[in-house]
Write a protein that binds this DNA or RNA. Sequence first.
DNA 1: TCCCAGGCTCTCT
DNA 2: AGAGAGCATGGG
Length: 274
Amino acid sequence: MILFKDNNVYIENDGTFDVEKIFTCGQCFRFEGKNQDFSGVAMGRSLHVFSKDNYVVLENVSEDEFQSRWKSYFDLDRDYNEINECLSVEKTIKEAMEISRGIRILRQDKWEALCSFIISQNNNIPRIKKIIASLCENFGDKNGDCYTFPTAAKLAAAGIDGLAVIRSGFRAKYIIDAANKVSQGGIDLDRIDSMAYEEAKAYLMQIKGVGNKVADCVLLFAYGFFTAFPKDVWIKRVIEKYYGDDFDESIFSPYGGIAQQYLFYMERLKENIK
DNA sequence: TCCCAGGCTCTCT
DNA sequence: AGAGAGCATGGG
């Protein structure tokens, strides 16, 4: 049940919408907050979202804006209870599912996700957030009290040297290659919508600095390819610790990406990592 | 201080 | 095909 009142959106929460877990599980980098109360920028808009009683509130959001923007962003047409039923195939994922209950996979902006996960490589999350914040402040457009994520054309114009201000290190050349290809049409991010997973992945990997893992993150977090199963250092640890060499993510099919996010969140929580 | 981070590219076998 | 070095920077 979703209510629209006083220009706020009230989403009834059956336990499948944990604001804090959604924004702290490492899938996005522009939201900050605590205690089920977060603010940030996505899709060019600032958003304040918090939990109150058994509702999640999107503050100052019209029904039109909800339908056109936030409904898909929060993946609200999907039944996560049903997915969790599907994923109950073995002990470790069941434990991860309990711990991670309420995580939803956000449908993020394509270019922002591509850029963000290029920046994420061999990096830690607090620093990824800082670099992205700097990227937006330096090259985004000021929109009220927030900055939009810069366009590919804007970053292409800045060039590698111009990008030095964000201190992204060796990743700058990768960001610029992506910006060039996207702004000049060599890569059409909208074309990926109509591709199959393997084709989409190979297409993204034409960009310098986009390998197996970054491509999977973009496909999962911006396109909703739930078969993508990004293998970062944490997931490799999870596999070694709980599963062993014969691990095959197809046991989670067709929701491997969601399982991956549950496992990632569980293991970092256990290790108390920010 | 020093290890490491949501990895990738390049080079050498 | 597979292994290993190097990469920029700064968080913890």
